[in-house]
């Protein structure tokens, strides 16, 4: 009985998404650019790999290699949120301005069916876009570089897919939250974009300001103290950057897609033993170990996505719905 309402609204939302020109445009744009990036990488890779006896994880390079501009994963990290925002920013206030919301809530369905169905439909669309993107690029890669992914690589790609869907769903949740809070669709669109720009581009700046204030770097001759100050500074910066979903996503994906990376951090404190082990063992990490490194990021992404949707749910359930 609960499910029935959700399914009916879900079906209508999916129909709306598929016929929405706005969504089709952004999806087409992202698929196009993604494919261009991957094919450029694929073509330049042919040259790069000439003469290498036995390259490892070539297939994953398709997604992580920066080529001429930036890599596919970076591209999704930057512009992926736009998919979520476009799918969600007018989810609820469109019904409000169209005066269909009061009609909808007076039908025999639970009120949360509305918001659940809208979120689910958005997640489904995100999944469709991401799956088709990865499949297109994989197909292209197989043709261009002639390498078939191994089981290990397929698993890594699957985890990458899940991470991407979670990441974009966070932005979907945020956009739906804005659409619940703001009555006008233009306001919620602008608010979503502002949040996206802030959390993606400016939070790093804020982080370094805060780090310099809390743990300033020291210009001393004492190497030990200078190093410690430097590491503290970096720690604060990282802490702040964890507030940004883009950082969580970037760290997680670069580690899962690049088996040679053994830590998501940019600086690590190395003693002689660590240095020795790093120089001795340069083999890629096994899949299980990569997952162990990525797990906290994945859990954090799941957490912020659900917290975001949870707030949205609560606000919507408490809101008074009037026709005027």
């Amino acid at each position: 009985m609960t499910l029935y309402g959700i399914l009916t609204i879900y079906r209508k939302e999916m129909e709306d998404h598929f016929s929405s020109i706005r969504f089709l445009l952004i999806a087409a744009l992202i698929v196009m650019v993604g494919v261009i990036i991957a094919s450029m990488v694929g073509m330049s890779m042919q040259d790069e790999l000439k003469g290498v006896a036995k390259p490892n994880f070539v297939f994953l390079l398709l997604f992580t290699s920066t080529g001429k501009l930036f890599s596919f994963t970076q591209f999704i990290g930057f512009l992926g949120p736009l998919i979520g925002i476009i799918l969600g920013f007018d989810a609820v206030n469109r019904e409000r301005t169209g005066r269909t919301l009061s009609k909808l809530v007076s039908q025999p369905i639970y009120r949360d069916a509305i918001i659940n169905a809208k979120f689910l439909a958005g997640v489904t669309m995100i999944t469709i876009v991401m799956v088709s993107l990865i499949l297109i690029i994989s197909g292209l890669g197989i043709r261009l570089i002639g390498v078939v992914p191994g089981a290990d690589e397929v698993w890594r790609l699957l985890i990458y897919l899940v991470l991407s869907i979670l990441y974009i769903s966070f932005w979907l949740g945020a956009a739906i939250l804005f659409s619940v809070v703001f009555r006008s669709t233009a306001t919620s669109a602008l608010a979503s974009l502002a949040a996206w720009i802030f959390l993606s581009f400016f939070i790093g700046l804020g982080g370094s300001f805060l780090a310099d204030a809390v743990a300033p770097m020291q210009q001393t001759a004492d190497v030990a103290r200078a190093t410690e100050a430097f590491i503290n500074n970096d720690r604060v910066q990282r802490l702040v950057s964890f507030l940004a979903p883009a950082t969580l996503y970037g760290d997680a994906t670069s580690t899962i897609l690049d088996p040679l990376r053994k830590t998501p951090r940019s600086f690590i404190l190395m003693g002689p033993l660590e240095r020795l082990s790093l120089s001795r063992f340069q083999n890629p990490l096994p899949l299980g170990q990569s997952i162990v490194i990525v797990a906290p990021f994945m859990i954090s992404l799941i957490a912020i996505t659900f917290i975001c949707f949870g707030i949205c749910y609560l606000v919507f359930m408490r809101q008074e719905i009037r026709s005027t």
Binding site: G98, R99, S102, K103, S106, Q107, P108, S323, T324
Partner: peptide
């Protein structure tokens, strides 16, 4: 809600 019908003021479609 199963047994009533409601027409809000200025209903929208």
């Amino acid at each position: 809600k199963e047994i009533i019908g409601y027409l809000p003021e200025n209903v929208g479609f």
